[in-house]
Amino acid sequence: MPRKIQVDKDHGQKVIELFFKLFFSPYEYSLTELARELECSKQTIGRIVDKINYSLEGIKIEDFIKNRKRYFKIDKKNVPVKAMNLSQSEYGMLQMCCSFTRHLMGKETFDQAVSALGKSQVLIKDKKTISPKHFASFVPGTIDYSGHQQIIKDLIIAMENQKVCKISYQSVGNINPKNFYLKPLKLFSRDDTIYLHAQMAKDPGKMYKTPKFDPLLAVHRMEDLKITTTSFEYPENFSFEEAFNQTFGVMKEDLFQIRVEFEGYAAMHVKERIWSTDQTIKEIKDGRIELIFTASSYIETLSWILSYGHEAKVIEPDWFVEEIHSELKKMHDLY
């Protein structure tokens, strides 16, 4: 019986999520997108749409075919406009998110966000607001994105309009920047660094060769960006969650599983976090733990384990243990 309640609750949440997504967004969404984002089948999306259309008077989810794909949207022209109030708690959450990302946005974008928050105060029911003085972000060691505000804005425009970009990029190890033609898919942050996940586009006048891995570019290493007139179609089955949030490492290379023992502070720090969705953490003895997880980036995994010093010990695979030995020898020789 408890299981049935949970199922009903999950279905109710999906109904609310789908309605809010369509009602508060000016965009249309494909059946595939909705099924992926709500983590359910396409048949379930159809049933939810039917339920909403049957239950709500004056609001109808339109269902249509475009480019041989099924899309949904709510036409809000005939929907009565009502005052949408913010609660004090909701406004506080916006203040907190704004403060936490201040160092990533740069002064110009941050000032725009603060201005938008100021304007939204009129929507608060009781007119009381939560002060931004309660929140802050730790800045030392972070990247200054002030000089990249226009590039970030142009990337957003290119993604919104699905336009190929020509990007001049200064990668690590190269003396001069290189030019790439890319289909920009997603901007995201990791460890206070903004990245662009993209797909390669054809360089005019050159033979196209499909890369083994999709490009991943650090925005602060972009020296120039031009939006071209060439359009691209957003990949229907692309899921950022599946591409990036399943395994350890922002760089996506060949996957490997690794087993590591931690003790002391490292053990406490590691067991508080999720490193890959398939991870297992086992208590050993004397406060030690064993972590087994999947990684996609050798260099990131190596650096991460070494950052714990003597409190981390790789058990397997053997080839990774040898890499640790080699790196420690280089460090020993350096000192």
Rank of each mutant, 00 (worst) to 15 (best):
K285C: 03
F188C: 08
E300V: 04
A113W: 15
S168K: 06
S115K: 04
F24L: 13
I274A: 03
V314I: 06
N53G: 13
E316P: 08
R190W: 09
R47M: 03
I227P: 15
L86Q: 03
Q279M: 03
K183L: 01
E316L: 01
S307D: 08
E323Q: 04
C97M: 07
T101K: 04
M96F: 15
N176K: 11
D254S: 10
E283L: 14
N179C: 05
D333Y: 07
T44I: 14
K313H: 03
D75Y: 15
K76W: 13
E108N: 14
I157P: 15
E261H: 01
E253V: 00
I284Q: 04
M207A: 05
L38E: 10
S297Y: 09
T210R: 08
K133S: 15
A83N: 13
D254V: 05
L38M: 11
I194P: 06
P317A: 02
I157Q: 08
N53T: 13
N176V: 07
K76F: 14
L291M: 06
P140I: 06
L18M: 12
K69P: 10
F293H: 00
D214M: 13
S89F: 13
K4E: 04
L334I: 05
T210F: 06
L18S: 02
S131D: 14
I315Q: 02
E37D: 15
S168N: 02
K329Y: 01
I143W: 14
Y335E: 10
K202T: 09
F72K: 02
K69T: 12
P184Y: 02
G309Q: 00
K252H: 09
K285L: 06
D144S: 12
V270C: 00
K166P: 07
K166N: 14
F293A: 00
M159K: 06
K186M: 13
I5P: 07
L94G: 15
Y298W: 11
M200P: 14
F19W: 15
L328Q: 02
H103A: 11
E300W: 08
K127W: 08
F213D: 11
P204A: 05
